[in-house]
Design a protein around this nucleic acid. Structure first.
Lengths: 186, 186
DNA sequence: TGGGTCATGTAACCTGTTACATGATTAG
DNA sequence: CTAATCATGTAACAGGTTACATGACCCA
């Protein structure tokens, strides 16, 4: 999946491993995190597969760099990946795993727990405005507003997710407070 | 994370690796999938850490089994895990990664794409009723309705998530159809 | 002179996936 | 007779995390 993410970015234009890392950090990190170490490792694999080419460029006053570009085989692979619908529904939600076992804690502790989630589990730590600004920058780099639309869709998802999470916490809190009050009256 | 999930289940009662796999498949798989191979490997680590004990039981007419039980050290570890709030917001959304790069496909293809998502990305492939039934069974096994409440919270989350996903797809479809119609008129 | 940016990675480890292997019983 | 259930795993590989290493330039 990361392989194809990198491939997709290189399809927009040539980049160094470092620049790929920046794009991940600024624009994709709210739904996919990638460490530099992982990016450089995947780049080796992508090159071995013949999906990308690297071009060593010497620089003065800065370290040398490897500029990566997507190959024709890489474009074919990218299209192939976009067409297939795995639809495996891979989900690994750390938050729910912890929630599942909260019965071990007291109701008061759990009320605090659900109050803290919307604060801690922010999808966009710097807000969506920052992200939209970056989006616009990249859009100008790409030059195709239709492509940027799909970027926006993923941000929309994040916004809706954050809202849903807040609602869920409120619902859970109501139920817990009802139980607490019922217990107090007895 | 899987380690602590297993620990949490063993805290409800003694189980074999096989039974842990069943619980994952029937009750947790909509937010966490675990292969048997992984479960057995983690069980070895848990035992090495002194968090669980295994008790070999010979059976006639069935293969022998290892019944696992949580130790005092395991209970302490479980509580510790529940208290700490990593709040790393680890998110790795395959769906959004693919959406992000949909600009490579035509609008018509993408309309089909967003129509297919609610069908393919079902959180509960067998519906929530099945899950609630299982939940009730386990609840009777545990004997504590308050603990089952947190199980229900996680199901609530799944229901809300599925609903949100559907809405998101509809929003995306509207935007795409507007663009398509604007293009047709020209 | 110290921290941030640019730019590259390696090594060890942990976690998750896929494929394979065994073998008895039981229900259709 | 065949498929499912019970019950155990191993091996190899893929993907993700953490820690470390290097080094120059630029700005305050």
């Amino acid at each position: 999946m990361l392989k194809h993410g990198i491939l997709g970015l290189l399809n927009y234009g040539n980049m160094t491993g470092y620049e790929i890392m920046i794009v991940f950090r600024d624009s994709l990190s709210y739904f996919w995190q990638a460490q530099t170490s992982q990016i450089y490792r995947e780049l080796q694999v992508l090159e071995k597969n013949g999906w990308i080419q690297s071009n060593h460029i010497e620089q003065n006053s800065k370290p040398d760099k490897n500029v990566l570009s997507i190959t024709e085989a890489g474009r074919i692979e990218l299209k192939k990946w976009l067409k297939e619908d795995e639809s495996k529904g891979i989900m690994r939600n750390h938050l729910l795993m912890k929630t599942f076992f909260r019965g071990e804690c007291s109701i008061d502790e759990n009320i605090e727990y659900f109050k803290s989630i919307p604060k801690n589990e922010k999808v966009f730590p710097d807000g969506t405005n920052e992200l939209m600004k970056k989006n616009l920058e990249y859009q100008q780099g790409i030059g195709d507003p239709l492509k940027a639309l799909y970027w926006k869709f993923t941000v929309d998802f994040g916004v809706m997710y954050e809202k849903m999470l807040k609602e869920w916490c409120e619902n859970c809190l109501h139920e817990l407070e009802n139980i607490k009050n019922a217990g107090d009256k007895k």
